[in-house]
Design a protein around this nucleic acid. Structure first.
Length: 960
RNA sequence: AGGCGCGUAGCUCAGUUGGUUAGAGCGCUACCUUGACAUGGUAGAGGUCGUUGGUUCGACUCCAAUCGCGCCUACCA
């Protein structure tokens, strides 16, 4: 084995081997089924740290369950991401100076498929680099045939039940992309703007009302001004008419208690129902009032084109919209109209104003509320059972409090606008005839036959496609074959857990629950594990515009500073930020990123995955876990050096276990490490079962480094290197050495798949869990750690006696090391040791474990003093009540020892005082549970004894 | 405005139904090129657990208030 662990050398070839050999596919077992659906990444996407985190958790769970013998499926696939994908290809066309309309719908969609075949595999390639054991043989895509059938089926069934309908409503309109978007795709952020105060004159010449607005251009669509009916300033004017400036129209003053807050602004609100959601609601309440209903279009006046420019008048509208503004973009129109108002003396004032501006998350364009025909899912009947599923505990959120967020959203949910005016996506399965009739069916043929329409009867299919989330909502069953009743569907639905960030609970999680309950009559998953966000070292959200994104691949393979800078500053939406990003990058990662390897990154994610908490990514921490990999690697190297070609007392081969052969003897260290291993196995399994990946990682880390490496490997040396040690002892130690390592590798494999496989291939044959390959390279072995049984705690190997005896040994060694460390004695320098105040077991242990003590504490001699013996002046350590003495003679500085003792005595004293105070409080003794009181008593006795012993020692030295 | 969450060592984080001397990693200090590993070893320094009250024999842990920070939802024209 190489002296240092090199992840690069092994990761990709192992992954390839696993995939080629089909290890990721579920195998029929007699265990339970276990299934996770990948949150399908956007096919245009590229991997970010969130994916890294998310997939580490899922893969850990999947590998854990697969090793436990469950029939395990991790279902992969990607999402067609309607708008995003269409934009990618439109940008390509732009380079050729073409627009999608130049190609036409069919050709354009062909182009997208071409793009998908060429570049759509990017993200799945990256997922492989993370070690994700996804069942690639069954990879799905939301636009593939099966999933498209599922989409049609669901649409038709919901339509037939009256749960899908078409209607003219206000939607969030993206004037750049020319499509409706759902309210979840609109991001509102505070921006600086203005508030324009405008005068609307009363028609009776009795003055004017002042209305304030952030969007003055919408006044062209006003149908009223609303006041609060209890507002004394205005209530006498209700019903009177105003002159709507610039238009020549007259609009009424209406009373609306719900919408108008008399305290705010002037207390007068202009009502523009076709361009504001609140105003639309006001209009709905008042549209039957004659002063509104007799207005053109019943007062619901759209003023925009799909580009959000002022539209032209229809033939019958006359000059509803003043010709002067027609064709102007909304912001140009605003400018001109404000100037015109000013000129007419109708502008009261302009104030600076901060307002929330809604922008499309894809285009960045300011979203307009816009009146269009759209398809909707009636959501209330679907939401009700979805709420109940969580209330009843059929679905459990981890951490639990996310259910509140879920309820909050579900109880206020609005009908879902599912149509999008783009070309890439599932085309809505609805056809129209020239009479305006709508026919919905799985295909045109089905529609014709169902409605007895002749072949030459003209039908046009709806031009729109469905929201991408519509197909994603079906993911848990569509990917398993639905609407076919497949074996996979039977085996794996409902799935076990959904692992996701909280940001898509609304987008996706809630919709899957609704659709799953509706069409499978069962929940899509039993648990939802919600994890935090991955942030940069300063705690900022990673984003392209901030330039602080990290590509997990760069953490795995490393990247130099220059490449990182150019990566972060190229292809930006806002090139003016490049300089800032460059500076920030050079400051925060001055040496670029070293190659840490996949396993180290995964271990870091696991270690930081405390429930629900965001992860602030600390390079130092990743480095620490890279070092951990190296530690494990070198421990294995050491083990191999000692067991390869040696007799390890291995008997018959069984997966995960092998019988012992021949007589062997286990040392205290052997029994101790086996006992510790069992407890670690239990701790890790408990942690993973409870989604506490941080605890699992910590248990593995501590066992590996602090127990196996720091103590056990060292304790092996005096046995293995000692020519006097018996064969039985050596065989026992070798067997333990190799088998504990082999167990540890399996224990760690779910978190760190690569390094564990690489080492395991060498160790497993020696540990007797797989047959030895006859000198061939490990890569040719047909066994894999992936399919080995997950280690379970064997209670018969838990050995409390060995643990406490070992504690004695460790305390002994630590005591001497401490003296050496604090006295500036070279750790390697052998020292004579005297033992005083010894019990029988002290004497026994000292004799029995002499080789351990000599080797690890570097003791030169150990002499047991009788009570009659005179103790020479010494430095002292306590092991229980026994005094471990290192004679001062020549070695030790008296003053230093006095200082050392005083410090120790001080500590013990304050300890004893604290405990004493507790115990002398009658309330404590009376009210605290007996066990707690007893514990304090024992503690006090112990520290008093120690104190006594050290104080005597101190006096003795002081008298010298 | 409402909801959720966070504040523990210089930094990143643990702390299980209230009962240890409040822990780990990184960083820091000193010493150590010992034959698995300097991506290492040994020893050590470092915290009045945001603040203030309260409940309790006992509070990092429970309650209240308060300060600071973050996120989400709804927003006032």
């Amino acid at each position: 084995m190489e002296k240092t662990y090199n992840p690069h050398a092994i990761e990709q070839s192992w992954y390839q081997t696993w995939e080629e050999r089909g290890y990721f596919a579920p195998t029929k077992t007699d265990g339970d089924s276990y299934c996770i659906m990948i949150p399908p990444p956007n096919v245009t996407g590229s991997l970010h740290m969130g994916h890294g985190f998310n997939n580490t958790i899922m893969d850990t769970l999947i590998r854990y369950h697969r090793m436990k013998g469950d029939q395990t499926l991790w279902q992969p696939g990607t999402d067609h991401a309607g708008i995003a994908t269409q934009m990618v290809v439109e940008r390509q066309l732009e380079m050729e100076q073409k627009k999608r309309h130049d190609l036409g719908r069919e050709k354009f969609i062909e182009r997208i498929w071409e793009w998908k075949h060429e570049s759509g595999g990017n993200i799945t390639r990256q997922l492989r680099r993370l070690g994700s054991s996804l069942d690639w043989q069954h990879e799905r895509f939301t636009m593939d045939d099966g999933l498209s059938d599922a989409v049609k089926e669901v649409f038709v069934r919901l339509y037939e039940e009256g749960l899908i309908y078409r209607g003219k409503r206000l939607v969030n309109w993206d004037p750049k992309l020319h499509t409706a978007v759902s309210d979840l795709e609109v991001l509102s952020e505070e921006e600086n703007g203005h508030m324009w105060h405008m005068r609307y004159p009363l028609t009776n010449g009795q003055g004017h009302l002042i209305v304030a607005t952030t969007r003055p251009e919408t006044m062209l669509g006003d149908c009223a001004v609303a006041v609060n009916p209890s507002d004394d300033r205005y209530k006498h004017m209700i019903g009177e008419l105003l002159e709507l400036p610039l238009t020549g129209r007259r609009i009424p003053i209406i009373a609306d208690e719900e919408h108008v807050d008399p305290e705010f602004g002037t207390g007068c609100v202009k009502i523009t129902p076709a361009h504001d959601f609140n105003d639309y609601a006001v209009w709905q309440r008042h549209r039957d009032e004659i002063s509104i209903s007799e207005q053109i279009h019943g007062g619901l006046i759209n003023i925009f084109t799909i580009d959000a420019a002022i539209r032209d008048n229809e033939a019958e509208e006359g000059s509803l919209l003043p010709q002067k503004y027609v064709g102007l973009d909304r912001y140009e129109a605003r400018k001109l109209m404000v100037a015109d108002l000013q000129e007419q003396g109708l502008l009261e004032k302009i104030e600076d104003h901060k307002l929330m501006v809604p922008r499309g998350d894809r285009s960045g364009a300011v979203i307009e509320p816009f009146l269009t025909d759209q398809w909707y899912v009636k959501i209330a009947p679907l939401a009700k059972p979805a709420i109940e599923a969580v209330e009843s505990g059929k679905i459990r959120f981890v951490p639990d409090n996310w259910k509140n967020t879920y309820y909050e959203w579900m109880r206020n949910i609005q009908d879902w606008c599912i149509s999008r005016q783009i070309w890439w996506g599932h085309r809505i399965p609805a056809w129209y005839d020239d009479e305006g009739n709508v026919y919905v069916g799985r295909s045109e043929a089905e529609v014709r036959s169902k409605h007895n329409l002749a072949d030459d009867y003209v039908l046009r299919q709806d031009e729109d496609v469905l929201d991408t989330w519509f197909s994603s909502a079906l993911w848990p069953f569509s990917t398993l074959g639905w609407p076919e009743q497949t074996e996979r569907l039977k085996d794996f639905y409902p799935t076990n857990v959904l692992v996701t960030g909280f940001d898509i609970i609304f987008f996706w999680v809630a919709r899957m629950i609704m659709m799953g309950l509706k069409f499978m009559d069962d929940v899509p998953f039993k648990e939802v594990y919600v994890h935090g966000l991955v942030r940069d070292g300063e705690g900022n959200k990673m984003s392209k515009s901030k330039g602080n994104v990290l590509d997990p691949i760069d953490v795995i393979d490393g990247i130099d500073l220059e490449s990182l800078v150019s990566k972060r500053t190229s292809g930006m939406m806002q090139p003016h930020l490049a300089q800032k990003i460059e500076k920030m990058t050079r400051r925060s990662l001055p040496d670029g990123i070293p190659a840490f390897g996949t396993d180290a990154m995964r271990f870091t994610f696991a270690a930081l995955a405390a429930t629900g908490r965001d992860i602030k990514l600390d390079m130092g921490r990743i480095e620490g876990y890279r070092n951990f990999c190296n530690k494990l690697w070198n421990a294995a190297r050491y083990v191999m050096m000692n067991v390869e070609g040696q007799d390890c007392a291995i008997g018959e081969i069984k997966p995960g276990h092998s019988a012992a052969e021949g007589s062997l003897q286990r040392s205290l260290a052997d029994r101790w490490i086996l006992s510790r291993l069992q407890k670690t196995k239990q701790a890790v399994a408990d942690a993973i079962d409870g989604y506490r990946f941080d605890h699992a990682a910590q248990a593995i880390y501590e066992f590996t480094w602090n127990e196996y490496c720091d103590w056990y490997l060292e304790l092996c040396k005096p046995v293995l290197n000692n020519e006097q040690a018996s064969d039985e002892a050596k065989r026992g130690t070798r067997r333990t050495l190799v088998r504990v390592l082999e167990n540890l590798l399996r224990l760690t494999h779910p978190v760190m798949p690569f390094i564990t496989e690489e080492i395991w291939q060498r160790v497993a044959p020696i540990a007797g869990v797989i047959p030895a390959t006859d000198g061939d390279s490990p890569a040719e072995s047909t066994a894999t750690i992936m399919n080995q049984p997950y280690p379970t705690a064997r209670h018969s190997l838990i050995d409390e006696a060995a643990e406490s005896e070992m504690a004695w040994v460790m305390q002994f060694i630590l005591g001497i090391r401490k003296i050496k460390g604090e006295m500036n004695i070279a750790p390697g320098k052998p020292v004579p040791v005297l033992l005083a105040n010894t019990s029988e077991s002290d004497k026994l242990y000292a004799e029995r474990h002499r080789p351990f003590l000599d080797f690890l504490a570097k003791t030169e001699s150990i002499e047991i003093l009788t009570p009659q013996d005179k103790e020479p002046e010494s430095a002292t350590a306590l092991v229980g009540e026994m005094k471990v003495l290192i004679p001062l003679a020549g070695l030790i500085d008296k003053a230093a020892e006095i200082k050392r003792l005083e410090k120790e005595i001080n500590r013990l004293q304050s300890d004893a005082e604290r405990t004493d105070k507790k115990l002398s409080n009658p309330n404590f003794v009376d009210k605290a549970p007996e066990a707690v009181v007893q514990k304090e008593r024992d503690k006090l006795a112990e520290s008093r004894k120690a104190l006594e012993s050290l104080q005597a020692q101190l006096e003795k030295i002081q008298q010298l």
